[in-house]
């Protein structure tokens, strides 16, 4: 178990008769930027849901740093340093952008009822440092002018940025990004890619589900292809691009 940060073994999940995920063995290495691609319904998001604890598998096991996290609650997995985003952006609509970020960054004891009732200077100090951090992230993401707006007033792309910012402030070791570029204009998509690349350069392990193949090929170090829940290709972008199975899965074989 050298570099394996995340490992799934024998993972199975079905919805009714439909096999959503059926993977024998798949590992993700530390500090690598891996993209997971595949046609619609290939089980990419389900795989994310299983890894992050949002769905329970029918069968199989998931390890994070050799620790079995198979039945763990999502919040426990997140506390281990693995943070995810969602395909349909989930921002806290009726909270300001600043509040969104500060809530995300705040630790458990700072959130506690007891500390919030006492409001000692320790908490104020912590909140101030949190605010500074949030300000810096907003600046990096170029949404600082929106800091006091309600999150629901943001554009779709800005919401994506905010969700990413919320993950960054948690200083994760692993980021699971579910279609970070979906529905975003080309210019912003480029910016987002740059941000993701720089996060990767900082040593964060990134798993990304994305349909934008060009973008995937450009920044990924490794591409994993799923179809009908199963692993059909795995390797560096160039290799995967030329893989016959992958081409068939995307374009269809024609004999159906």
């Amino acid at each position: 178990m050298s570099n394996n940060l995340i490992r799934v073994a024998n993972l199975k999940k079905s919805f009714g008769g439909v096999k959503a995920v059926d993977i024998d063995d798949l590992s993700f290495e530390s500090k690598e930027l891996t993209s997971i691609i595949g046609p619609n319904g290939a089980g990419k998001t389900t795989l994310f849901d299983l890894i992050s604890g949002f769905q329970e598998e029918d069968n199989g096991e998931i390890f994070y740093k050799d620790k079995n996290i198979t039945k763990s609650q999502p919040y426990r997995i997140a506390r281990l340093g693995m943070v995810r985003t969602f395909q349909l952006t989930k921002v806290f609509d009726r909270m300001t952008v600043l509040e969104n970020l500060m809530f995300a960054g705040s630790n458990v004891s700072n959130d506690s009822l007891f500390q919030s009732f006492m409001q000692l200077s320790k908490q104020k100090k912590y909140e101030n440092s949190l605010k500074e951090e949030a300000m810096k992230i907003m600046k990096d993401l170029n949404i600082e002018q929106m800091s006091d707006s309600y999150a629901r007033e943001l554009s779709g792309g800005q919401k994506k940025l905010l969700e990413l910012g919320r993950s960054i402030i948690k200083k994760p070791e692993v980021l699971l990004l579910d279609e970070p570029l979906a529905g975003v204009n080309p210019k912003l998509a480029e910016d987002l890619l740059e941000i993701i690349q720089s996060l990767s350069n900082q040593g964060i392990t990134i798993l990304m589900v994305e349909h934008n193949i060009e973008a995937v090929m450009k920044i990924s170090e490794r591409v994993v292809v799923l179809a009908e829940g199963a692993l059909i290709a795995d390797g560096p972008p160039q290799e995967v691009r030329e893989n016959q199975k992958v081409i068939e899965a995307y374009l269809g074989t024609g004999d159906e």
Binding site: Y75, R79, K90, F92, R94, E99, V108, R166
Partner: peptide, 14 residues
């Protein structure tokens, strides 16, 4: 308030 807005996001943030 964050729970009120979106529980899943709250859980995903630990």
């Amino acid at each position: 308030r964050a729970v009120r807005e979106d529980e899943d996001a709250v859980r995903a943030l630990g």
